[in-house]
Every structure is written in structure tokens, then in C-alpha cells.
Write a protein that binds this DNA or RNA. Structure first.
Length: 593
RNA sequence: GCGCCCGUAGCUCAGUUGGAUAGAGCAUCGGCCUUCUAAGCCGAGGGUCGCAGGUUCGACUCCUGCCGGGCGCGCCA
């Protein structure tokens, strides 16, 4: 509809400049917007305002001249000048009514472009470390990434969803040692738990499994471990930051010793404990994501990059390109060439790869797999990391724009009774169990991702009218109920008779529904372009709002058969758009509530 | 100290990339069920868009400087 208006405006300006005997180029910055206020018509354009300078006339005079040169169109019922020089268009009723037929014909495809014509995009999200359960922060990334991927997939992109498993770093060794010490304790060995280990109960579950499956086979002499643990400084009390940092450093180095001692003691069995620990954590994460309705096309292991040798290969490419150098025994990438504030270490002095080195290789691999656009969803605390990854990609490809990181701002819990002690945090699984998948996902998506989110657990959990997800779902259920009532009366909705009845949709509440449905495709496109699924969530609330208003103002099942046909068509289309939108957000559209 | 994000109604947040009288939910107040689901609807009150300058026909939006909050500045991941 906008494009038709734009075509008319282009003709008007061309005609106007011809009549003036001048060649006026079409100015940049044209806007054709849906009017907020019905008194301003249906659409408004700023063309006269932006063309005024080029024509050397005041905006209102330009607007008047444009109207005189505007070609006649059945689309437009009326056009008038307002304010500083806006042109307001009042569209003919038929221009809106036809959306009903369009929605019902296209069904689940309405507003969608599944052609994949825009190319391939890799969406990497969640990627939570497999060292513990997902918390509410991960949930936000999961809801955002999944919905965004869905939206991109129906707006012309070919989408691949991927989870990067950080299964190669030191934190996995800490996990392994934590499990093994719990195992030893379960077998009656007396030893304290490390300060920097993972103390929570889920560690014990794996330890118990090892006991069941391996009995005493993983038991070793723990003398050296005990010595290390006893020498470890206890948790820092109320001390100054400098002292706290020193204590932490000593605890960390104790942890490193424990890792080495565990490796030495367990030998090849270290891998048994390690893989059991990883498998259990990943299984828990998968189960939670499954309950959350989030699926990935691929789970990509960091360790597999190391094992295959690609982690080194990718860096060799950078070396060949001349961006790698040695200093202080370490290997560095000259990221400052590409705007990073300092160069970054790839291989530490001890020869071990940094997390950055593997992550860099991972991104190169994604490009190699044929994805020119890499959309990464990260926590806001990783923002300092963007420059170096982008620098590495630019060093190899010359492209600055391949990596598009979306940062998720932090989630805080407002419920007030959240314990802060370790092991007592709210997991995503808890949230889903208590509030349900639908309420939880909708809650997350009702905020822009670059905004701090205060998660009101009590509200999400409430099965009351306060919960925003019900408002939208209720609109869908209500429409379903109308059709059930019609069926009980022996009446059916005939799509064939629809087109001839649509002219009966003239009430303001009906007009609003038509306008909103007509806006759905551009809402999807805006959400995709801005990587902003919340635009869709807000749109759906607006659509539900219009439905509820219409429901209360008018009856749909009426004696006048033609009017009933028109109104049933209207709400059937509304139901379709609600279902389409909710589906993209991963929220169900119930037929009754 | 440097960098990134943020500051909008009592609370939680939108604001279509510079447009017309800044919106919604919750909370408060007043109405609406004999009829398609009241998890709903209709109405009212509530604002110096952190502060001060600048850019222009026009600024919540863009620029500069302050004030306030969050996060980040490892040969950690």
C-alpha cells in the first residue's frame, strides 16, 4: 500500500516539476507513515517538507501544488494538507477491507517471505557454559535468539540456529574436579571442597551416577589433594578489595593445582569423569531448552575444533596474512590494526590456546560453512570482546559487517525473596515450571533486548488477568469460541461469500482491526531489520486490544447474514494473524482458556 | 582513568531511526455482564522525556558538555 502511494507521489512530483519547466530530483528522506491519529487520515507523508528546499517554495505551497498534480486513484478517498505541510491521505474503504481475503487466502504465510532471497544467516545464541543449569539471564538470550531467528526465517533469510558448546576450557576442568571430589566424598574419603569449585547439588547427581556405574573404580589416593585443599585460604570475609583479590588469586592457583593433581591421579579415567560431567550438564541444558520450545539446528563443540586441528589452521591463515607476532613468549594477533584498543593473545607463554583463539577459529569456520552474516547473541558483559572478534574477521575477509553482535542487557529479579547465596539462584527451569513456557517467553520479549530487564517473577507466575500473555492468548481463544458458537447454531463460515460482504466493515473498531492486520507484514520486517522481536510482541498486544474492543462493541453472530459473513471473516483473519505472530514468538495460541 | 549501554507517568516499559496534542500495562478513581468467554470493555486523573547548550521548518530521537545508574577494560572463560 505504501509503495502504491509512493508511486503516486513520484508521478505528482514529476508532473509538478515538468509544469515548472524544471528538473527536480526526488528528494531523499521520504516518509509515508500510518497516521497515529484517525483525524489525520490513514497515511501521512512529509514529501512537501523535504521537497520545499529544492523547489524554493514554502512547504504548504508545495503540498498544494503536489495535490493538484496527484494522479487520480481509486485507492484514495481524500487527501488534505495539514500542519507545516504534511499531506494526509484518507484511503477508500475497499483499500483496507481486502486485507481480510488476503490473510485468509495466505493463512500461515500471510506477511511472510520464505524465499530466503536475502541469503544465509547464522544465529548463534545461548551458548551457556555446560558447567551448570541455565539461569534467568540465559533464558532471555534463548527467547530473544529463537524468536529473532524465526522472524528472520519468514522475512527472506535462510536461517541456521547454532549453540556453541564451551567444552574445552579451564571451567570444564573445574567442573570435572568438582564432580570427582564429590565422588570421593560419596565413597567416604574425607576432604574439603575447593573454594573455587562448583558446590551446587547438581554436581552431586553426576557424582552419584559415577558411584552407581563405576563403584570404587575411580577412587584414588587423595593425599596430595587434601594437602592442597587444606593450604587453600578460606573464603574472604569483610576485607578490602585488594586483599580479596589476593585471596581469590591464591584460591585460583590452588584450583589449578587440583586440576593437575586430579589428572595425574586419574590418568585416562580423568576423561571418564570429565565426559560424564559434561554429558549431564548438556543434557540438563537441552531439557530446559526443549521445555522452553527452543531448538537448534546444530550444537557445535569447541573441543571438536581443537581435536580437528582447525583451531590452529585458522590462526595459520592469519599468520600467513601477516597479522600474528611473537612477544614475551606468547603469540599475539595484531587486532589494533582493525580498531581494537590493544593486541590480543592467541597462545599463552605455556603454549595453550586462549578462549579467544578457539572462538576466533569458530567464527572463521562459520564463514567457511557459507554464512556471510553471523548474528551472535551475547550477554552485555561481553561487549568488550566484540572488537577483537570483529578485528579477526576483518583481518581474514576484509569485511567489517559480517559479525553482528546483539548484546542482551542484564536481567534482575524483582521478587525480592531471591537468595543470593550460591546454589540458590533461580534457574530457567524453575521459571518455566512455575510460570509456564508461554508466560516466560512473552515476558522476556516484552522488553527491548538492549534494555535492562526487571523480571517480576510473581507477575509471570500469576495465573491472573495481570499476566500480559493471557491478554493476547485470550483474544485468540475468544475468536475460536465465536466459531464454536456459530457451529452450534448450525451456521458455517463461507469464504466464497466473503468478498461480497466485506464492504459492510465500516465501524471504527473494525477499521482498526483492518488497519492493524494490514500493518503486520511491515511490523515483521521492522522486527527483522532492527533485530527487535519485541516490536512483534507489542504489535500482538495492540491487535488483541483492538479485537477485545471490537468484541465488546459489536456482536459477530447477527441476523443479517451478509454482515455476519463480513464480521466472521474479519475475526477469522485476526485469529490467523494472532496465531502467526504468537508462533514466531514461541507462544502457543490456545483455542480455549 | 578509558570504552559500551541506559536515564520517558507513582512502578515496569514502548516510542516505527527527525514529524503533528509523547503512548501502553500495572497501581488509583468512576462506570459496563439476562445476549458470541468480564483472563474483557468504556472513561478519568497522572509528564520540565536526567540537566544545560547546539544543529533546523520541526528534537524523546542527532551533536557537545555535565549529573546519575549498569557493565567491561586478564597470557580468565
Amino acid at each position: 500500500m505504501k509503495s502504491q502511494l509512493q508511486a503516486l507521489l513520484e508521478q505528482a512530483l514529476a508532473s509538478l516539476s515538468a509544469s515548472l519547466g524544471r528538473d527536480v530530483p526526488f528528494p531523499a528522506g521520504l516518509q509515508i507513515d500510518a497516521a497515529k491519529d484517525p483525524r489525520h487520515g490513514d497515511f501521512a507523508t512529509n514529501l512537501a517538507l523535504i521537497a520545499a528546499k529544492g523547489l524554493g517554495q514554502p512547504p504548504r505551497a508545495v503540498a498544494q501544488a503536489l495535490l493538484e498534480h496527484l494522479p487520480a486513484s481509486s485507492l484514495i478517498a481524500k487527501a488534505e494538507i495539514a500542519g507545516p505541510g504534511f499531506i494526509n491521505f484518507f484511503l477508500a474503504p475497499g483499500a483496507f477491507q481486502s486485507v481480510v481475503s488476503r490473510v485468509l487466502e495466505q493463512g500461515a504465510d500471510y506477511g511472510c517471505d520464505r524465499s530466503g532471497a536475502l541469503g544465509k544467516v547464522m544465529v548463534e545464541f545461548v551458548s551457556a557454559n555446560p558447567t551448570g543449569p541455565m539461569h534467568v539471564g540465559h533464558g532471555r538470550g534463548a527467547a530473544y535468539g529463537d524468536s529473532l531467528a524465526s522472524i528472520l526465517a519468514v522475512t527472506g533469510w535462510t536461517v541456521h540456529r547454532e549453540y556453541y558448546i564451551n567444552d574445552a576450557g579451564r571451567q570444564v576442568d573445574i567442573l570435572t574436579v568438582s564432580v570427582w571430589i564429590r565422588y570421593l566424598q560419596a565413597r567416604g574419603v574425607e576432604l574439603p571442597f575447593p573454594q573455587r569449585g562448583y558446590p551446587a547439588d547438581y554436581i552431586r547427581l553426576t557424582a552419584d551416577r559415577l558411584v552407581r556405574e563405576h563403584g570404587d573404580a575411580l577412587r584414588r589416593d587423595a593425599t596430595s589433594l587434601v594437602a592442597t585443599l587444606q593450604a587453600e585460604p578460606p573464603a574472604a570475609g569483610d576485607v578490602d578489595d585488594k586483599t580479596k583479590a589476593a585471596i581469590k588469586a591464591r584460591q585460583e592457583s590452588a584450583m589449578d593445582e587440583l586440576i593437575e593433581q586430579s589428572r595425574a591421579a586419574l590418568g585416562t579415567d580423568y576423561a571418564v569423569v570429565r565426559s560424564a560431567a559434561l554429558a549431564d550438564q548438556l543434557a540438563a541444558i537441552r531439557a530446559t531448552l526443549d521445555a522452553f520450545g527452543v531448538r537448534f539446528d546444530q550444537w557445535y563443540s569447541e573441543q571438536s575444533l581443537v581435536d580437528s586441528g582447525f583451531a590452529r589452521t585458522a590462526i595459520d591463515r592469519l599468520r600467513t596474512a601477516g597479522h600474528v607476532y611473537e612477544q614475551d613468549g606468547a603469540t599475539w594477533l595484531r587486532t589494533t590494526t582493525f580498531g581494537d584498543e590493544k593486541d590480543r593473545v592467541l597462545f599463552k607463554a605455556d603454549g595453550a590456546a586462549t578462549y579467544f583463539a578457539n572462538d576466533l577459529a569458530y567464527h572463521v569456520d562459520k564463514l567457511d560453512r557459507g554464512y556471510p552474516v553471523l548474528l551472535d547473541v551475547w550477554g552485555a558483559d561481553h561487549h568488550g570482546y566484540i572488537a577483537r572478534v570483529r578485528a579477526a574477521i576483518e583481518a581474514l575477509t576484509g569485511r567489517k559487517d559480517a559479525l553482528r553482535v546483539q548484546l542482551m542487557q542484564f536481567v534482575t529479579l524483582s521478587s525480592g525473596r531471591m537468595g543470593k547465596r550460591s546454589g540458590n539462584f533461580v534457574t530457567l527451569q524453575d521459571l518455566i515450571s512455575e510460570a509456564g513456557k508461554d508466560a516466560t517467553r512473552f515476558f522476556y520479549l516484552l522488553r527491548s533486548h538492549d534494555q535492562h530487564l526487571e523480571f517480576d517473577i510473581e507477575l509471570a507466575r500469576s495465573q491472573s488477568n495481570d499476566n500480559p500473555v493471557f491478554y493476547v492468548q485470550y483474544a485468540h481463544a475468544r475468536i475460536c469460541s465465536v466459531f464454536r458458537q456459530a457451529a452450534e447454531r448450525g451456521q458455517s463460515f463461507d469464504i466464497g461469500a466473503l468478498a461480497g460482504s466485506l464492504h459492510r466493515l465500516v465501524e471504527p473498531q473494525e477499521k482498526l482491526l483492518l488497519t492493524l492486520m494490514q500493518k503486520y507484514p511491515e511490523t515483521l520486517n521492522a522486527a527483522a531489520r532492527q533485530y527487535a522481536p519485541h516490536l512483534l510482541a507489542f504489535y500482538l498486544r495492540e491487535l488483541a486490544d483492538a479485537l477485545h474492543s471490537c468484541y465488546n462493541a459489536h456482536k459477530f453472530l447477527v441476523d443479517d447474514a451478509e454482515l455476519q459473513s463480513a464480521r466472521l471473516g474479519l475475526v477469522a483473519a485476526t485469529r490467523q494473524v494472532l496465531a502467526n505472530g504468537l508462533g514466531l514468538l514461541g507462544v502457543s495460541a490456545p483455542e480455549s482458556m
